[in-house]
């Protein structure tokens, strides 16, 4: 029944709908599309640059960790350049084991159109 209903209603005499534009309207449409594509490109570029900046900040921090001894001195500072303590924090930081354990469920909350009715839970206690 439902299937025949769907078939009946989809077989509309106006299928497919023609979209006819006057010349100026077509030009306008093209311009609007173009403007939107440029806008999106710009937005994406900004986002990429931001990610790149964040990545570079991380990389620089990790590089500093890698070259650093337990006393915080680097070989470039004339500090201790050898020993097993050089880059110890770096090696631990690069450890991937277990980083996905204990991810809180609240972290999966997506962004909404409107805030929750009761607002932020300031009174949360452990």
């Amino acid at each position: 029944m439902a299937k025949s209903q769907i078939r009946y209603h989809l077989a509309h005499p106006l299928t497919p709908r023609p979209l006819r534009f006057s010349r100026l309207r077509a030009l306008r449409h093209w311009t609007i599309r173009r403007a939107y594509n440029l806008y999106r490109h710009q937005a994406r570029r900004t986002q990429e640059l931001e990610l790149e900046r964040q990545y570079n900040a991380m990389r620089d921090a990790c590089e500093a960790l890698r070259l650093m001894g337990a006393d915080g001195m680097m070989a470039a500072d004339g500090g201790s350049a050898g020993g097993k303590d050089v880059g110890r924090l770096y090696r631990i930081a690069m450890e991937k084991k277990g980083i996905w354990e204990g991810v809180p469920i609240e972290y999966a909350r997506t962004q909404m159109e409107a805030p929750p009715r009761e607002g932020w839970n300031h009174a949360w206690t452990r």
């Binding site: 900040a57 921090a61 500093a64 930081a93 690069m94 450890e95 991937k96 980083i99 204990g102 991810v103």
Partner: peptide, 12 residues
């Protein structure tokens, strides 16, 4: 209720 993300530093 906090969560420290990952082991690597994000900046220095």
């Amino acid at each position: 209720n906090t969560w420290v993300v990952g082991n690597a530093p994000i900046g220095h």
